[in-house]
Each structure stands twice: as C-alpha cells, then as structure tokens.
Amino acid sequence: MRNAAPQQLSYASAMPHRVDQQLANGHKHAFVGRSLRKTYITGETEVHALRGVDLDIHAGEVLVLLGPSGSGKSTLLNIIGGLDRPTAGELWYYDTDLTALDDAELTRFRRANIGFVFQFYNLIPSLTAEENVRLVTDISDNPMPAAEALELVGLGERRTHFPAQLSGGEQQRVAVARAIAKRPGVLLCDEPTGALDSQTGVRVLETLAQANQELGTTLILITHNAGIAAMADRVFNFLDGQIASVMENETRVPASEMAW
C-alpha cells in the first residue's frame, strides 16, 4: 500500500502544472511552499508568525518540525492542513494551489487528504471509540472500516468504550485511528505525545510510524522533544518564523527504540 496516491480533488479544473518543482531532487513533492508569510494582527501589534518560508515536503517522508514556542511551526502546520491561509506566498499540494481555495474547497481538501492528531486528542466525549472513527469514515470516499482502524492502533477490543473510559494513551490512539482511517495522503500531528508519559508516547509514535510505513502517508510531526527527531527522514528547525536549518537523518531510529 506504499505511496497511496493523493485523492483527486473534484475542483481540480484549471490547476497549472508545476513540473519544475515536482522533479526537484528526484523526489515527488507532496507540498511545495515559496515565500510563505503569515502576519496576525492582534489589537495594535502585528505578529509575524511566518517570515518567508520556502519548503519542499516529500511525499511519504516523515518530517519533524522542531522549535521553541512561537517560532512558527504550528502556524505552518495549520496552513499546510488547510485550516488557515498564508498572508503572502504560494503553497502547492501536488497540483493544487492551496492559496486559491475558498473555505468550502479547503474543507474538501482536508476531508480528502489530511488526517489530524492533536495534543489533547479532541475526541467527542459522547461518542464511543468506534463512533469517533466513524465521524471521519462517514464522510470519506475510500475509508477503511472503523473497526479495522482501531485494530491497527491495537484498540480493537475497546471500540465500544467512551473516551472517559479510556486512558490518555488509548484516547490518543483512537485519535490516530480516526486520522488514518480515511487513508489520508498526509498526517499532521501537533505535539501528539505532549500530554502523554514516555511509554505511552512511544506507543503512539509507533502507531504513527506504522501508518507511514504501511499506508505511505506523509507524516508531519510538531514536537518540542528533540529526541523524537530521530525517527524522521528530515527535521526542520524553526526560529523566529523561519526555517533556520534542515537536518537529514541517514537512518531513521524506530519509534520503539526511543525514550525520553
């Protein structure tokens, strides 16, 4: 199942073809961004969250975004995930110009291509584990059965439990199952282990890596935890709204061998 093809967007009508960037370094690029800027105006102060970011994200890679609070990594993740728009610059997802999409089209983009995992799980408390997964499979074109997604994260036995009846790690694995059930092209994880103890965190990271391996999903992780960077193909170090450096790992350390 490697290299799951990105799902075609129904609105992909007049998208210009960016062959030049597609071919750079012989990698197929999931995302290509140029001069991305994001400026928030809060009250009377301007906050420059992104100050001109250029990036190429390879299809199927594991990418870790490292950096202190306020360095712009979450802002970038939100823009990549179609939750927010850049103030300036361009951003492509394969053939799709994300900056040209309106709200409804961005929603369709997320629905078709993006799986999210949040620090605080964001499960619906009134739905069982399986129903939380179904929340996504209900609206996807080619999902795996919700039960199968829960099997993948090792929670097949607990699918009828409500979030309040699950531990934090189990809840986060439900969130991962929810994210991978639709076989997304991209998994975006914002501090997925931030609220978990080390042992549980490792379990979650294993699950994410497994999705990357078995489904060919591009995996983008935000973390404060430099240790996690070892499991990545590449690491972007953020500072002051810019990518200060890019680090490539020769070999990826399996999640199971990590500890912090």
């Binding site: 995930g81 629905r111 078709a112 993006i114």
Partner: peptide, 16 residues
C-alpha cells in the same frame, strides 16, 4: 464549540 471546531478540522463543511 470545541467539538464543532474539531468536526470542521476533520473536514466537515459548515453546513454539516
């Protein structure tokens, strides 16, 4: 609000 925003993130349209 929190749940509704989560649904939006998951790809639910405003109308949904």
């Amino acid at each position: 609000a929190h749940e509704l925003a989560t649904l939006r993130v998951l790809g639910y349209h405003r109308s949904e």
